[in-house]
Simulated assay, not measured.
Amino acid sequence: MQHAVTDGAEPQPKAHRRRVWWPAALAAAVALGLGVPALVASGSSASGTTASAPANGSPEAGFARDMAAHHQQAIDMSFIVRDRTQNDEVRRLAFDIINTQANQRGMMMGWLDQWGLPQSSGDQPMAWMNMGHAYEAHDGSLMPGMATNADLTKLRGLSGHDAEVFYLQLMVRHHTGGVEMAQGYVDISANPVEKRLAQTMVNGQRSEIDLITQMLHDRGAQPLS
């Protein structure tokens, strides 16, 4: 079940690690207005007609769908921990992740809509990415780094310090998988607009992994093996 990003969310703190510039609605509007894929925006034939939008089974469409689903789980986990702890540091991190990943998710959904493609398909997750092997989905973990249904159930049952630690551990693993996916798309992408977003994800989530690892260390814990 997806949450509206504004439901019950607290006003954004004035001082935190990363400033979020766009609300989700604006990000989606930007995606619709400016996020024209290179295959459409710059591609043109000798007759002057623009090239076609990405195909339904293309890496562009596959990455947008899969990363949107990946982001949604991070948003869901952040809403869970927000309600399971009163620690300001963890709640600020959760609020940042909610805002950042909802913004990016809105952009990817906007591109799919612009391309005239469905937001979901019957394709196997990660089919667009040449991993050398198929990702083995299990217990709701559809893509690299995603939490299982059992993980989410456990997180909902924790509170305070225990909830903070498990959330941070899940987010390190989640971000690590997200970086793998985003870098995989950067390596094969022919779409400069979506490629820039993917590179932003790689850079931002690597930085956040370092931050979260330090937060775990401060709590006497380590990332999951």
Rank of each mutant, 00 (worst) to 15 (best):
M129R: 11
G160D: 09
L142T: 10
G204E: 11
E194N: 08
Y135E: 04
Q205P: 06
A147N: 02
R91H: 00
D187S: 09
G132I: 03
A147M: 13
I98F: 06
I188N: 03
G116L: 11
T85M: 06
A137E: 13
R92V: 11
W128L: 08
G110R: 07
G122W: 03
M107W: 10
T85Q: 09
K195F: 07
M131Y: 05
G177A: 04
V193A: 15
H175I: 00
A190C: 05
G116R: 09
Y135Q: 01
G157V: 00
M107E: 11
H174V: 07
S121H: 08
M181L: 12
T100M: 12
L117T: 02
G132M: 01
N103A: 15
Q119K: 14
M131G: 03
I98S: 08
G177C: 10
D88L: 12
Y167C: 01
R173V: 04
Q199N: 12
G122Q: 10
S189K: 11
W128V: 08
A137N: 09
L197Q: 13
L152I: 15
V172R: 10
Q205V: 04
F95N: 10
V193I: 13
N87V: 11
Q199H: 06
Q169K: 05
G110W: 07
Q104E: 15
G184E: 08
N149R: 14
R156E: 14
G116H: 10
P192W: 10
N99Q: 15
V165E: 01
G116Y: 13
G122N: 12
P118H: 03
D123H: 13
A127V: 14
A102L: 08
E164V: 01
T100H: 13
R173M: 05
Q101F: 08
S120R: 12
P144W: 05
R173I: 01
L168F: 03
E194V: 00
H138M: 06
R91G: 03
D113G: 13
G145A: 06
A134F: 07
N99T: 09
G204N: 13
H133G: 04
P118I: 07
T176M: 09
W111I: 05
R84Q: 12
D96H: 12
Q104I: 04
T153M: 13
V90C: 00
N103G: 15
M107V: 15
E89F: 01
Q169E: 03
Q183N: 08
V193F: 15
D139R: 08
Q183M: 11
A198S: 11
A198I: 05
D113Q: 12
M171A: 07
S121P: 02
N103I: 04
N87G: 07
G157K: 09
T200L: 13
S207H: 05
D139L: 06
R196Q: 12
T200Q: 14
G106A: 03
